[in-house]
């Protein structure tokens, strides 16, 4: 299949000055993105994850033409983003979870109207796309409110609509669900899934929420210290990292660390204990055994977080 996005050994190096003494400063290099290569085909929906400062946002900024790479080759829809930023802008949509691309003091409707004219969207297509977004993202009641008055979830939906009015081929989402409540998250995820399956829009999203990836992406790339450490499906990621889920159990009283097959005790804190078990295994038999053998008060299962998954990948590599 044709690669819509192609990175070949892309690098981004920042010069950082650090104060050393009263007047002297020491220069050092930070390789935020350190030789990353990948292809994304048209119509793919890819998750791009990694710890804070791993290089996710820097990659997105190079893909949108905000930042100029220090090395390597990068093409989006055949365009070099750094050199033809405005030409690329007409073919991509960008949503930053942390800041709006809308005009803060203008009503949502005026922002969209401005987008229509700035992108020169034909009237009929604009009307169709706006109607579709308003319906699916439930924006009808919000159109006349200035962006600054919207809640985070409403603003995010408004931003996603704004990024799609010109029918972009690629949609970049930088932390689209950060800070959203459960209902808003579900709404945003449902919309993105439909967008990808029905319209074939290529989506690249960064996130801290592994559930986003599980529910949306068939492919996930993990970046750490500027390097791509995993590129494959999420199941593969669990396998690579051999990651674990955690059973948090509240017993009726303090007990010595419990030992049951298929789980290992991690932590004991009064009557509460943490038991780790492989992410691929089911929690049901463990829960059954625990309830049969011990007096329980409460119990919950914690999904692995990205930081743990990556830490585990390194631990495995070091052990090999």
């Amino acid at each position: 299949m044709e690669a819509l996005i192609r990175l070949e050994r892309v690098e981004k190096v920042f010069q950082v000055r650090r104060k050393a003494g009263r007047l002297r400063s020491v220069r050092s290099e930070v390789r935020a993105v350190d030789g990353i290569s990948f292809d994304i085909a048209r119509g793919e929906m890819v998750g791009y994850i990694g710890p804070n400062g791993a290089g996710k946002s820097t990659t997105i900024k190079m893909l949108t033409g905000i930042l100029v790479p220090s090395g390597g080759r990068l093409r989006v829809a055949g365009i070099d983003p750094a050199r033809e930023r405005t030409r690329l802008a007409r073919r991509i949509g960008v949503v930053f979870g942390q800041r709006t691309t809308l005009w803060w003091d203008l009503p949502l409707r005026d922002s969209y109207e401005l987008v229509r004219r700035m992108y020169r969207i034909p009237d009929d297509r604009y009307a169709r796309n706006l109607a579709r977004c308003v319906e699916l993202l439930d924006l009808g009641a919000l159109l006349d409110a200035p962006v600054r008055q919207l809640s985070l979830g409403q603003r995010m939906r408004g931003d996603i609509a704004a990024a799609l009015l010109h029918d972009p081929e690629v949609l970049y989402l930088d932390e689209p669900t950060i800070g959203l409540d459960v209902v808003s998250k579900a709404k945003v995820r449902g919309f993105l899934r439909d967008l990808n399956t029905e319209r074939g829009t290529t989506v690249l999203l960064t996130t801290h929420d592994l559930t986003d990836i599980e529910q949306l992406c068939t492919r996930v790339m993990v970046i750490d210290h500027g390097r791509l450490v995993h590129d494959g499906d999420l199941g593969g990621l669990h396998a690579v990292g051999d990651s674990e889920r955690t059973l948090v159990v509240d017993f009726e009283r303090e007990l010595p660390p419990v030992r049951i097959a298929g789980a290992r005790p991690v932590k004991v804190e009064g009557p509460r204990q943490w038991l780790a078990f492989p992410a691929s295994a089911s929690a049901a038999p463990l829960v059954a055994e625990l309830t049969a053998r011990y007096p329980l008060v409460d119990l919950s299962v914690r999904e692995p977080v990205i930081e743990d998954v990556i830490a585990r990948m390194y631990a495995d590599r070091a052990a090999l």
């Binding site: 405005t86 709006t100 992108y119």
Partner: peptide, 23 residues
């Protein structure tokens, strides 16, 4: 400082005009 300059850079118009006409 707050990173909103990036939002001007992803639109198909010169940054200068967008920054000057804002507000």
């Amino acid at each position: 400082r707050d990173g909103t300059l990036d939002t001007l850079l992803v639109r198909p118009a010169p940054v200068f005009a967008q920054a000057a006409a804002d507000r």
